[in-house]
Amino acid sequence: MAIGVLVVVLACSGCEARRVAFNDPIRPADVAFIEPGTTTLSDVVRRLGAPDEMMGTETRGVARYRFQVTKAFRVNFGWVFRFFSPVSPTMALGRVDVGTDVFQVVFDPNWVIQEQAFAYGASASRFSPWPF
């Protein structure tokens, strides 16, 4: 067992996997309750929480929710040098991907939702060591 643990750790030690997640993802099912022309901004906030940003014009407002995920993976082939060399040079392949999902609702001056839209980009983020 000890040898098995050692082999696994040695095999993995040249690799790194990191993830950074900003807020929780919003799924289409989470916003299925929204009916343009009926649902109000208060209803949306009650279910989804406060948006991350607000913007708009004189006659309309836009509330935007963001979910962002960063995935980084790196393999350092120079790591094995530390066993027989005083210097372990970095010989790494790595990749960092950032993906963002955005959900936005457009509301009128009476707080009634007029439109909603999703932008899916989080799936563009994935773990891969291949940078080319």
Binding site: V9, C12, A17, R18, R19, V20, A21, F22, N23
Partner: peptide, 8 residues
Amino acid sequence: LVISRLNI
């Protein structure tokens, strides 16, 4: 060790 996760 070699994995991490940062939640914001």
